[in-house]
Write a protein that binds this DNA or RNA. Structure first.
Length: 676
DNA sequence: CCGGTATACCTTTTT
DNA sequence: GGTATACCGG
């Protein structure tokens, strides 16, 4: 196999096939190329059967891209049976056949963010604790990521959130099991439990998976770490690729120590550093290196390039948010014209998704096509979640969270009071809520009308549950179901204006279209399969775009710094370079990890190929109020000679001539005021 | 039981 | 500035 297009380190990594290997791959050092080459090498040179190879990523997009690149190298036939997927898909694949051993049924629901919060909120209310459900859920999730069982979460601290979490966690876990539901953390935690508690399953898996690869290893949490360890404890053929400088998911339970401690965990592991950067110009790398060296705990790496220095890195400080957006658009026009660049060559990166608004408005105003990645997702919309809730309940009648969600939607006269009575009856009789709903006779204080409504409700669900069991006609049956439920009417009826109603009806239509597409593409389509796909969908797919973008794909890209990891653009705007944005101030004000924020900034910088522009605003509208803003401390950590101050950059840094001009216009303004 | 208005709270990042 | 929840009157 020809490996001459790789540098020495890259080639060494590809040829190292047996035993543990840590690839410390700096930003833009060609790590994806190395992984795909390594897979091709295993297949072609080492004659490893494809089904023995497993590569785990964090996003579907990364998995898809990796697969495409391997296929391009060796052909689709040679890849048959190889697993390249996210950790969560891999977990589900392992659980699918054997989850019965853990006391769950195979038609389980998957609970994502809002389902989880709803459940925690209900449990908090049940126990009579008034607290932010999201915060409590965060602690529970943290415990699960660290594989701590409900009992082990002893309230060692005084922190009220911790105490509440300790109390809620066992109930939460019990509820999930009763509802036959897994949350995202369960997918990993239960996979680990399955392999640890059922040796025959572990043996079976180990026999199959002989060569493991992991991308973005710095983002693994303990559950993922343990899973990997279980899978490759015997042969030790584990190749992990990562960059501790790009660890930006600590808040989600990632343990960058996993990458720092790799040799300890896998004695005899080889370590290869990739420091030559093939992406960015010299000036951009200088800025990146200068910034990241302010982090203490890290593996020393210095990115370098044999390429050109490139144009200066600019820093433009603006009056306010609108000004910032205008400036970005102005620079897009200028660069596009001067450098013959396309719209798709530009990316606007920000810390929080709300920051996208101003740029969207400005781009739309100027008729510049754009795509917005992330933010409020299609599948987060209420009507979409409601429709999916119906499907989930069809597949899994025990799913109480979703059952309650649809019980009175569309309005059918089963109000809160009745719902409470039904829930109580379910608890008293110790039977699932669904059973109570289908047989609501003899429940105290339940009105005649309510009983009738319940019978109609459960009747229609039973009817369609039966219909969906017949193979085929998935999309068609789904469409009928929604129609029979009268969902469209409800959307128009409750909408604040007709346009909103139509928009919501279209969203529901989109769900049905997605179901149709799924049915066409899948060899063995099922409703459950569709729901699984939807649950595990990446969040960083494009969500909104200007009209013209839908036709031509040439568009400016708007996204959060987190979403940008792994991508690159010829020209990057790093906006909102202000204290409280970057580094972001946590609402709780407690532990905030400046180092992680700095890495986030580093990730943004290293996305740029030839031109990088920092922007910030002196004032910004927040909660409708105008507030003054401080430049980010990170700008101060970059030696000033590496930054070119933009047009009106740094008021104190004006040239004498400019100062004179400013002074003159100031006095002119005063004079005009006095004359009025 | 439902729909309206007052209100609190908000803004991390996501598989 | 906008949205999700709380409360009240019909």
């Amino acid at each position: 196999m020809d490996l001459s297009f790789l540098n020495d380190q890259q080639r060494a990594a590809v040829r190292h096939t047996e035993g543990a290997l840590l690839l410390l791959a700096g930003a833009g050092s060609g790590k994806t190329r190395v992984i795909t080459c390594r897979i091709a090498y295993l297949l072609k040179e080492k004659r490893v059967p494809a089904e023995q190879i497993v590569a785990a990523t964090f996003t579907n997009k990364a998995a898809r891209e990796m697969k495409e690149r391997v296929v391009a190298q060796v052909g689709a036939g040679a890849c048959r049976g190889m697993i390249i997927s996210t950790f969560h898909s891999l977990g589900l694949r392992l659980l699918r056949d054997d989850i019965g051993k853990l006391g769950y049924k195979s038609n389980f629901s998957i609970y994502g963010g809002s389902d989880q919060i709803r459940l925690v909120r209900d449990l908090l209310q049940e126990v009579g604790i008034k607290m932010d459900a999201e915060a409590v859920l965060g602690r529970i999730s943290g415990a699960k990521n660290r594989l701590l069982p409900p009992g082990a979460k002893a309230p060692s601290s005084e922190d009220p959130v911790d105490l509440a979490a300790a109390g809620i966690y066992p109930r939460y876990q019990r509820a999930l099991k009763a509802f036959n539901a897994l949350d995202f953390d369960d997918i990993l935690m239960l996979t680990v439990r399955l392999l640890e508690e059922h040796p025959p399953v572990l043996r079976k898996i180990r026999k199959r998976f002989r060569y493991l690869m992991v991308d973005e290893y710095q983002d693994t949490n303990l559950a993922q770490y343990r899973l990997l360890h279980l899978l490759c404890a015997e042969h030790g053929n584990l190749c992990v690729v990562g960059d501790d400088d790009q660890s930006i998911y600590g808040w989600r339970g990632a343990e960058p120590e996993n990458i720092l401690d790799f040799e300890k965990d896998y004695p005899g592991a080889q370590i290869i550093k990739l420091e030559e950067n093939y992406r960015s110009s010299g000036r951009i790398l200088k800025v990146a290196n200068a910034l990241i060296r302010h982090n203490a705990k890290r593996r020393e790496k210095v990115l370098w390039t044999s390429g050109p220095e490139g144009p200066p890195v600019d820093y433009i400080s603006c009056e306010d948010g609108e000004d910032e957006a205008r400036m970005v658009v102005e620079r897009i026009h200028a660069e596009r014209f001067r450098q013959k660049m396309e719209y798709r060559d530009f990316a606007v990166l920000y810390r929080t998704n709300i920051q996208s608004r101003a740029f969207e408005e400005q781009l739309r105003y100027e008729n510049i096509p754009y795509v917005l990645i992330g933010g409020q997702q299609f599948f987060d919309r209420k009507e979409v979640k409601d429709v999916l809730a119906y499907f989930k309940v069809l597949v899994n009648p025990l799913d109480e969270v979703n059952l309650l969600r649809i019980l009175n939607w569309p309005r059918r006269g089963i109000g809160e009071t009745s719902a409470d009575r039904l829930i109580r009856a379910s608890a008293d009789r110790e039977v699932p809520l669904w059973d109570v709903l289908s047989d609501p006779f003899g429940i105290p204080d339940l009105g005649e009308k309510t009983v009738q409504a319940l019978q109609q409700f459960t009747g229609i669900l039973e009817n369609y549950r039966r219909r969906f069991r017949q193979p085929g006609f998935l999309a068609e049956t789904g469409r009928r179901f929604i129609k029979d439920l009268g969902i469209e009417d409800e959307l128009y009826r409750t909408a604040e204006d007709p346009a909103r109603g139509r928009r919501r009806a279209e969203n529901v239509e989109e769900v049905l279209n997605a179901l149709a597409t799924y049915e066409e593409r899948e060899p063995l389509p099922t409703l459950a399969g569709f729901l699984e796909k939807v649950s595990l969908l990446d969040r960083d797919e494009p969500v909104r775009s200007s009209k013209e973008t839908k036709l031509a794909k040439d568009a400016v890209v708007l996204m959060s710094l987190h979403s940008s990891k792994g991508l690159e653009f010829p020209c990057v705007f790093l906006v909102g370079m202000e204290e409280d944005f970057l580094p972001h101030r946590k609402s709780a004000g407690e532990f905030f990890d400046v180092d992680e924020e700095r890495r986030l900034c580093y990730v943004g910088i290293t996305r740029a190929r030839r031109k990088l522009i920092f922007l910030n605003a002196a004032r910004r509208r927040k909660f409708g109020k105008l507030r003054t803003r401080e430049p980010s401390r990170f700008l101060g950590e970059i030696p000033p000679e590496l930054l070119e101050k933009g047009p009106d950059g740094g008021k104190s840094e004006l040239s004498p001539g400019e100062q004179e001009k400013t002074a003159a216009s100031f006095f002119a303004g005063i004079k005009a005021l006095l004359e009025d």
